[in-house]
Simulated assay, not measured.
Amino acid sequence: MYLSEHTGDASGPSLVYLWVPDVDRIAADLGADVEQVPWARECEVTDPDGNRVRVATAT
């Protein structure tokens, strides 16, 4: 994955969605709550610039 901050590449804030084998472990490391949605268990964190990273494990 390549994330760019070059002017004109993309407008922010943005979202990155990552699929992982164990969202509960990642959520614990991030201090985030896990939510059950129809397609996965997922958590989300936001950086100081408003960019979001959502991490999920398929159900």
Rank of each mutant, 00 (worst) to 15 (best):
D9Y: 09
V37L: 14
R25M: 10
A32G: 00
D49Y: 03
G31R: 05
L30H: 05
D22N: 11
C43S: 11
H6P: 01
V45A: 06
A10M: 14
E35P: 03
P48D: 11
S11R: 07
V20A: 06
A27D: 03
E35L: 12
E42S: 13
E35K: 15
Q36F: 05
H6G: 06
D9M: 08
I26A: 09
D29H: 06
A32H: 01
V16N: 09
S11P: 03
P48W: 11
P48Y: 10
W19P: 00
S11T: 05
I26F: 04
T46C: 15
R25A: 15
D49F: 06
V37G: 08
G31W: 08
D33A: 09
A32S: 03
D47I: 03
V34M: 00
D29E: 12
L18G: 02
D29C: 03
E44F: 04
S14L: 12
G8C: 02
V23N: 00
V23E: 01
P13K: 09
R41T: 05
D29G: 07
H6D: 13
R41C: 11
E44C: 13
L18C: 07
V34N: 02
S14V: 13
Y17T: 10
S11W: 00
P38R: 05
P21M: 07
D24F: 12
D24W: 11
L15D: 10
E42P: 01
W39Q: 12
T7P: 04
S14Q: 15
V16L: 15
G12D: 03
E42M: 15
P48V: 09
T7S: 14
P48M: 11
V16P: 01
H6A: 13
G31V: 07
S14I: 09
A10S: 15
V45Q: 04
I26K: 00
Q36N: 11
I26H: 04
D9N: 10
E42N: 13
L15A: 09
A40I: 02
D33K: 12
V16Q: 10
S14P: 01
V37Y: 09
Y17F: 13
